[in-house]
């Protein structure tokens, strides 16, 4: 489990840096994609832990202030948790709809929080929209491909 977790986190970081290098996605948006991917399949613990580690390493390698990406991760995860509890209980919405809603809201919220803290509310909507669309595309793509390998046995899943 530990080895799998480490391998997973390393692959998230490698993919993240590679995709950010070819200007596909920002680092934080890529981390959201993976966290959302695990939330889709109710693997909350592994999603949160890998997101946490990836955020710390991204901040360190990208010379961001350590804790910045992590802080940007907190509010969207909170929203995702609320959405998960309200909407997915008794299967009110499907996983795919949840994933789309949570990814888009994650990116909007994190960018909004980020612009509130670090700049004077200068949110570039076109960039945010681009990030959100690419993120949703990647998330749905990888979830449909790797979905069967990660499905949980119990319906509810566990959270820490």
């Amino acid at each position: 489990m530990l080895v799998a977790g480490i391998l997973l986190t390393v692959s998230i970081i490698v993919l993240d840096i590679a995709l950010a290098e070819v200007y596909v996605l920002s680092h934080i948006a890529f981390i959201f994609v993976f966290v959302n991917f695990f939330y889709w399949f109710k693997r909350y613990k592994i999603g949160l832990v890998s997101g946490l580690i990836a955020s710390i390493i991204i901040d360190l390698t990208m010379h961001n202030q350590l804790g910045r990406t992590l802080l940007s991760l907190v509010f969207p995860i909170l929203i995702m948790s609320i959405l998960d509890n309200i909407l997915r209980i008794e299967n009110k919405i499907s996983s795919i709809v949840f994933a789309v809603i949570s990814t888009v809201s994650s990116i909007f919220i994190s960018d909004l929080v980020f612009s509130l803290i670090y700049s004077n509310l200068s949110l570039e909507f076109i960039l945010v929209l681009k990030k959100a669309l690419i993120s949703v595309f990647i998330l749905v793509f990888i979830s449909l491909i790797f979905g069967d390998a990660i499905k949980v046995e119990s319906k509810k899943g566990k959270y820490l």
């Binding site: 350590l66 804790g67 992590l70 802080l71 907190v74 909170l78 948790s81 609320i82 509890n85 959270y159």
Partner: peptide, 23 residues
Amino acid sequence: EFKNRIAVLGVIAIFSILTLLLD
């Protein structure tokens, strides 16, 4: 369950603010 989630996220938020300050 929801309280658990809030607690974990609270810890992460405090941890990130601490690291930001230390940085």
